[in-house]
Design a protein around this nucleic acid. Structure first.
Lengths: 211, 211
DNA sequence: TCATCTGTACCAACCAGTCGGTACACAACC
DNA sequence: GGTTGTGTACCGACTGGTTGGTACAGATGA
């Protein structure tokens, strides 16, 4: 019954590719320029899609905004979060440290350009657009949730001491990373990020079981 | 020689007041909506100043941008940084803790609205406008510098252990605060900020002399 | 009178979104 | 198997409104 499993006609395939091209171009542009300061025409030019076609696939620019947010989150989960936390046998603290390193490496690869797409959107839209704010809040909550479960599992496994309250620690990890990325973006110095991650690991070690 | 100390004519006084009104309104609006998404007309309407008058006082919108940035920084130094670090007798670690609390209280007073004006501008403009980026980078450097000297003085006074490297620690403090403010802005929950500040203090205690 | 201010009318460029119309895959029918 | 009908996918010109910025006449006080 699912359309996805049916044999897809060339028309439907092309249609999906068009939508994909729009979202791809918009994600790239809006990551750098922000949502409000990226003109639809730029996205259209970059993706080679006409105006009418765009409004066939999306109801509005806002609609596109939610689409790129979904894409950003999906990519973050798949490329940064999942690779660290998927293997169940691994020690949890090691997974968290691996995650910190992965975020650092992502900034290095980007040459300190762009910063965190989710953080940028949060900064730009939280006080301007309630819909985006709510969506972004749930994204950060999910991210923090992933860290919280890792921390609680670490406690259950005896890696982390019992006096570690997972919620504030997870909040702090997310906040520190976001701030470090922002500072790296404005200084254009990966060394800042390296120092911050090093200090963040030192903080984390505070809760390591057996002092 | 300084014009500021001369007896000011009513005309010059009015002119300065006009400029002041523009910067004041622009600062308030751009703190919430961002630089690029705040229209000049809005600023003019809010300050009750005409277009021609505006372009008498400012060369361009960009010029206004630098002016509000100066104002934001001056206000931050005078209202948040200076009150904590001005008294030379105080213990340095206490000054830093007082500063963290002050940042937290500022967010509470704002009802988690607006976030950090400098952080917002950094997020919005760092990859779009090199002039602003450079200016913002120097602002964050000055902020970090203030924390660094406090930390070094703390070491000299024996409050902080010798193995504390002031630069990365200061970087981390700034980053963690910026991230915490951002997370608070998007969640609209001051509890997030409280938790982050608490964890940040726990981190800071790592370097307290005598364990 | 003359430089300093200020309001208003205006401009071209740009914005998100609309509209009339076209191309074509695909199915239905004869 | 060709013709016809239909909805999906698409195009680019256009619209009303907004943008940063300019021109300029008039007001004001030294």
């Amino acid at each position: 019954m699912s359309a996805r499993t049916e044999i897809e006609g060339s028309r439907a395939r092309q249609s999906r590719a068009t939508r994909e091209a729009i979202v791809e171009a918009a994600t790239r542009l809006m990551h750098l320029r922000g949502y409000q300061n990226t003109a639809l025409d730029e996205v259209l030019r970059a993706s080679g899609v006409g105006k009418g076609n765009f409004y066939y696939h999306f109801r509005s620019k806002e609609d596109l905004g939610y689409a790129i947010l979904d894409r950003i989150v999906a990519r973050f989960v798949e490329r940064t979060l999942d690779p660290c936390f998927s293997e169940p046998g691994q020690p949890r603290l090691g997974q968290i440290r691996c995650f910190l390193d992965r975020v650092l490496e992502a900034q290095r690869e980007r040459n300190c350009v762009g910063g965190c797409a989710m953080g940028n959107l949060a900064s730009e839209l939280s006080d301007v657009h309630e819909g985006f704010r709510a969506r972004l809040a749930s994204v950060f909550e999910a991210w923090r949730g992933r860290l919280m479960t890792a921390l609680r599992e670490a406690q259950a496994r005896g890696e982390v001491s019992a006096d570690c309250d997972a919620e504030p620690v997870a909040h702090f990890l997310v906040a520190a990373l976001e701030g470090a990325i922002l500072l790296t973006k404005v200084t254009k110095d990966i060394g800042v990020m390296e120092q911050c991650v090093r200090e963040l690991k030192r903080y984390l070690a505070l809760y390591e079981a057996g002092r």
